[in-house]
Nucleic acid binder design. Structure first.
Ligand SMILES: NC(=O)c1ccc[n+]([C@@H]2O[C@H](COP(=O)([O-])OP(=O)(O)OC[C@H]3O[C@@H](n4cnc5c(N)ncnc54)[C@H](O)[C@@H]3O)[C@@H](O)[C@H]2O)c1
Ligand SMILES: NC(=O)c1ccc[n+]([C@@H]2O[C@H](COP(=O)([O-])OP(=O)(O)OC[C@H]3O[C@@H](n4cnc5c(N)ncnc54)[C@H](O)[C@@H]3O)[C@@H](O)[C@H]2O)c1
Lengths: 285, 285
DNA sequence: CAATCTTTGTGCACACGTTCACAAACGCAT
DNA sequence: ATGCGTTTGTGAACGTGTGCACAAAGATTG
């Protein structure tokens, strides 16, 4: 097991979340804060309040303060947080004060893009090697690094002390590549292939799945269309009255009135898909 | 506002989560189930139990059953779920029975990779257009599609009824591109730039952030190293005894004993970083 | 038809995450 | 020193998500 997103398998009998145990949700937000703080630091802003920083990171200020409270009391009441100091503390907590060599396996479209990505090195992540199984790809270079053959994986992982691997192979090869990475000693994997990886205890897997993100957006998009259809059906008279009563009238359905073109498009969608009670194409036995 | 991951701003006065309201966590798993079910469907498997399907999707079977219960009672007790029927129901719920035209803005490294990605079209997502601001890029083609100029954005969005936009521009341009997409009528955005986007109510934003994923992995990796260091410090005598007592002895510290080479690497890390109580580089005023 | 076996659907308890609201702490002015 | 305005840190309430455990429902067999 140990596959999905919040799979931190090494949860062996921890008492509660206090006293070194930072909640997973908080950990996921720390990089966000760090990014905002780094921007402030570059503008030489000395201190920042929870309200300002929260706004810059796109979160609630109470949440931010609670998040920071897990790290310790690094703020000053009446003033705010010291930017440089917080940058250091968060970096340390996330383990970014050390070097993290990373291997990328599968140098196709996506692997190339990742290899070229500058944001990699900016936070202590160093591309230790690019690997591929295809002899046609091996020997070429991407972003100044040579693409090396999978045979070298074990040596590279050992020599360079690699503990993080990125998988950008086709889905069919992902599990096999994953097994090999784990056997070689990699204990954290970032998987871009649309595959459920199974790994032993103590190995963390996170996945990035474009297709899932789009499907979630589509779900909400469909829901929005359905809601607007309901609204339009429920009060068409009121909407017409508002439209014809001139500039002095107040908007009756503000959300819909803002973007009338969109509303028309969504109504078409809602009509096409059948928001509810559609006849299934296949009936169960 | 409306920026982070689970930001579904259109939550205007909904009573509870029942009666059409599917929990966000469930929505996020539906694509996973769908993928597993599609694979079964291609192997012509007629029915599947919650246990089997859960295992294939990498989740708990109780969770899966509860997830499906939000969609309705589509299973048969004692048998399981009809694969084809479930595929249809989930597809319909996610809105995949209709066509979703998508525009990709910023055809650089990542934009190219996404344009070439086959998994896009496989689920009703059609690339309606590739857009870029750079005259050197406009006019070239990627994955058989021409790269068009940003000036055409508004026309394309209207003509093709686009409601989903993908942003793969540099971070500095992301907010500006986002604003323009929203003004043109796009109401769902998938953002690959490391930027916090602010959008009006009714617009959904999801972000994919490689750097954050790596930082989260680094955090857990560091934690693992710290734990192993503690273990090794707490019971070095026991470990030595086990190592020297021959093949008849049982493992004392199983997790560490599995991959001894890794343990050495982690201990080195733990020593280098200072797991706790490090002196800060900058002190607060 | 009854007995048995399998598997679903869900009530319930608990864990986790979010938000409110406010006392305590601090800087600063007087 | 004292008071005032500001902002942190956190207790407490609430909402969401997870997983156990089991009754009910259907299949299957005799
Ligand atoms: N391209 C995208 O935008 C995108 C988006 C989302 C997900 N993905 C997923 O990312 C993965 C890679 O996508 P891509 O477009 O780069 O594919 P690609 O075919 O361009 O590249 C895959 C690379 O992996 C190599 N490879 C195959 N088997 C291997 C093995 N056993 N060991 C090592 N290397 C091996 C191939 O030689 C090839 O170079 C796929 O799983 C895809 O579904 C891609
Ligand atoms: N490459 C990766 O693997 C990777 C990984 C994670 C995140 N990202 C992020 O994704 C984004 C794109 O990365 P990339 O490597 O493809 O960058 P890139 O520089 O290769 O491509 C960016 C493209 O955007 C275009 N562009 C710039 N300003 C624009 C504007 N105002 N309107 C329209 N187009 C505009 C540029 O012409 C260029 O073609 C960046 O924000 C990067 O941080 C990239």
């Amino acid at each position: 097991m140990a596959t999905g997103r919040p799979t931190h398998t090494a949860d062996r009998g921890r008492p509660a979340n206090r006293g070194r145990g930072i909640p997973e949700a908080t950990v996921a937000r720390l990089p966000l804060y760090l990014r905002a703080l780094t921007a402030l630091s570059e503008r030489s802003v000395p201190t920042v309040s929870s309200e300002e920083l929260a706004s810059a990171a796109g979160v609630n200020s109470a949440k931010l303060r609670k998040d920071f409270s897990y790290l310790g009391s690094y703020g000053t009441r009446g003033v705010g947080y010291d930017v440089e100091y917080l940058v250091y503390q968060i970096s340390r907590e996330l383990g970014l004060t050390q070097d993290w060599p990373v291997v990328i396996v599968g140098i196709g479209n996506l692997g190339h893009a990742l290899a070229n990505y500058g944001g990699f090195a900016s936070r202590g992540f160093r591309v230790a090697a690019l690997l591929d199984a295809d002899p046609a790809v091996v020997g070429t270079s991407a972003a100044g690094l040579p693409v090396r053959h999978m045979d070298e994986l074990e040596d590279i992982v050992e020599d360079e002390q690699v503990s993080i691997g990125v998988i950008t192979t086709p889905p069919g090869a992902a599990q096999q590549v994953c097994d090999r990475l784990v056997a070689a000693g990699v204990t954290s994997i970032l998987n871009f292939a649309p595959t459920v990886l199974s790994v032993p205890d103590g190995v963390d897997v996170r996945k990035v799945d474009l297709s899932i993100e789009l499907q979630i957006l589509a779900f909400h998009e469909q829901r929005k269309a359905g809601e607007e259809a309901e609204q339009a059906l429920a009060a068409p008279a009121a909407a017409k009255a508002a439209a014809s009563s001139g500039p002095s009238s107040e908007p009756v359905v503000p959300a819909a009135a803002d973007r009338p073109a969109r509303t028309a498009a969504k109504l078409r969608r809602a009509a096409a898909s059948g928001t509810d009670g559609d006849l299934p194409a296949v009936m169960p036995a």
